[in-house]
Write a protein that binds this DNA or RNA. Structure first.
Lengths: 245, 245
DNA sequence: CTCTGTGAATATATTCACAGCC
DNA sequence: GGCTGTGAATATATTCACAGAG
């Protein structure tokens, strides 16, 4: 591998960010939820201070985050709730509908399929898939369970864009491979394993075990007389893991 | 804070504790899982390159991460799998057992209770709680379901340290409050809401809706002809949210 | 020679603090 | 006066690239 020498002078570093920082993107859904519950109880305007509190972040961070989307607030007043809901929704791509398939209809798959805030915002579960013959044909959350063998066919017919993998770890990679081959470009993985995908496909991982272990780490610190690290805060979290082959 | 100086001669190499970075802590569970499956198939030694691939990260990042725990590798060779498993486990606090209570025994609670990799590593589900009378007394994953009313009593009797909240959002804050009052210091929240806790209590959040929205954001970018931002990688994720009152 | 461990360089994120508008 | 938006300062994280152990 030709180790490219670091150019000492050239470094355009790119002009302006057309992009919203990842850390910000990860918080937008939280702001959105807070805003929506405010809207529900008739709040029309909110200050960065109040919204930040509702979202569990600092107000400076909130303002900086929102500033990446544009100038949607009014100085001296705050943010108009409905307007901000719209702007964040648009930024997150929730003004269009995303077609989701859930693979694995065990307890977890069931819980996910029945999750309320799901269909409500831009996401529609259009397919449920399972390898268990006895589940095939039954209806869960109003969606008929199809056999895993029909995966490709279902993905194409239902125009699935996002796959939720809720299978055992052993099956996850194969299911993911088939999903990707069939055209899925985003995967949310609940199986406790790393999924290998081609470049261009995005995987995010949700993992109970990982989260518990992170909690355990901090519990241990606490017990080990680490003089209560000021506020016991947990900044980062679940890393989206993706391997390129 | 009298920073205790590391004894220079001690063998187990207490690796200087200016603290392990959060981003590193969040990845240790992934390394651990990869290492454990390697150990299972008899791998004795692994290079940073191979372990990094298995974990879906770059090898430089992996080495840097591990260097925060100490010098547990051998130059020119790699890492001894078993030894590294032990060191990471110890760092994460998995050498002791953590007693976990799950509140909410719906589909999700069931899925969590039945999750395998749970009891296997340092975590024991010692209590299940639900408000539904018809569930109380039944046994899930070998644990008897208790009534929510007995929460405080159960937490104390079972010495629960970590609470998993798998209730509807409406109930989550109240359940959390009671847990904290009863002595719980770590909470893993599956309910789609921000939990308010006192300083010193740690909350981590797992949220389907948030993850989907982040995926949608990137899907939208892709569709909007954003010239495939190099590798479509997803660096950060679910922020641990905590509000101080 | 191979592969770890790590400073130095870079990139990202958070926080501060205040100018500027309402 | 009150609040947003934002540069500048700081803190964290990632990546590079190579010295040095085995």
């Amino acid at each position: 591998m030709s180790a490219q020498r670091t150019t000492p002078l050239m470094r355009p570093a790119r002009p302006l960010r057309p992009g919203v920082p990842e850390a910000t993107v990860a918080r937008l859904p939280i702001y959105l939820r807070a805003l929506m519950s405010m809207a529900e109880v008739g709040v029309e305007t909110v200050s960065s201070e109040d919204l930040a509190t509702a979202a569990g972040v600092g107000s400076a961070k909130l303002r900086k985050d929102l500033s990446h989307l544009g100038s949607y607030g009014t100085r001296g007043v705050g943010y108009e709730v409905d307007y901000l809901v719209y702007q964040i929704s648009r930024e997150l791509g929730l003004t269009q509908d995303w077609r989701v398939a859930i693979v694995g209809v065990g307890n977890l798959g069931n819980a996910l399929a029945n999750y309320g805030g799901f269909a409500s915002r831009g996401f529609t579960v259009v397919a449920l898939l399972d390898a268990d013959e006895s589940l095939v044909g039954t209806s869960v959350a109003g969606v008929r369970v199809r056999h895993l063998a029909d995966l490709e066919q279902v993905v194409v017919a239902e125009q699935v864009t996002i796959a939720v993998v809720a299978t055992p770890a052993e099956a996850a990679q194969q299911v993911c491979d088939r999903m990707v081959t069939a055209g899925v470009t985003s995967v949310l993985n609940f199986a406790p394993c790393v999924l290998d995908v081609p470049v261009g496909v995005m995987v995010r991982k949700v993992d109970l075990s990982t989260e518990l272990q992170i909690l355990a780490f901090h519990e241990q610190r606490r017990l080990a007389g680490v003089v209560s690290p000021d506020p016991v805060l947990a900044p980062t979290a679940t890393e989206a893991v993706r391997r390129v082959r």
